Amino acid sequence: MGVRKRHARAGAALVTIVVGAVALAPGAAVAVAPGAGTPVCEVRDERLNEISGMVATDTGYVVVNDGSDSEAARRIFFLDRRCTVVRTIAYPSRPRDTEDLAVGADGTVWVADIGDNDRTRQTIALWRLAPGADQPVLHRMTYPDGPHDAEALLLDSAGRPLIITKGGGGTVGLYAPTTALRPAATTPLAPVGRVALPASTTSNPYSFLGRGVVTGAASAPDGRRVVLRSYADAFEYDVRAGDVVAALTTGTARITPLPDEPQGESITYSRDGRWLLTISESADQPSGTRPAILRYPTTTAPSASPRPPEPTTAGPVAPAPGRPAAGHMVDTVNRIWPVVAGAGILLAVLGLAGVLRWRRADNR
Results as ranks from 00 to 15, higher is better:
2 G>R: 03
9 R>C: 02
12 A>V: 01
13 A>C: 01
23 A>W: 04
26 P>D: 08
28 A>T: 08
32 V>F: 03
35 G>N: 04
42 E>P: 02
67 G>D: 13
68 S>V: 01
71 E>V: 14
72 A>F: 05
72 A>P: 06
80 D>Q: 02
81 R>W: 00
84 T>P: 00
90 A>K: 14
95 P>R: 04
101 L>R: 10
102 A>E: 08
108 T>R: 09
114 I>H: 10
114 I>D: 03
118 D>S: 12
123 T>S: 07
125 A>H: 07
126 L>I: 09
130 A>I: 01
133 A>R: 04
133 A>E: 13
141 M>P: 13
144 P>C: 09
146 G>A: 08
150 A>N: 04
151 E>Q: 09
151 E>M: 12
152 A>K: 11
154 L>T: 00
156 D>H: 10
158 A>T: 15
158 A>Y: 05
160 R>N: 05
161 P>H: 02
162 L>W: 08
164 I>P: 03
164 I>T: 06
165 T>C: 01
167 G>C: 10
168 G>R: 04
171 T>W: 01
175 Y>K: 12
179 T>K: 11
184 A>M: 10
184 A>C: 06
187 T>A: 13
192 V>Q: 13
194 R>L: 15
196 A>D: 07
198 P>T: 02
201 T>C: 03
202 T>Y: 01
202 T>H: 00
205 P>D: 07
228 L>Y: 10
236 E>T: 12
241 A>C: 04
243 D>T: 02
245 V>E: 03
246 A>I: 10
252 T>Y: 01
257 P>W: 12
258 L>S: 05
264 G>C: 08
264 G>H: 07
271 R>G: 05
273 G>R: 07
274 R>F: 00
293 I>N: 01
296 Y>R: 02
301 A>S: 11
302 P>K: 03
316 P>I: 07
329 M>R: 14
329 M>I: 15
330 V>M: 11
330 V>C: 02
336 I>Y: 08
352 L>Q: 13
356 L>M: 11
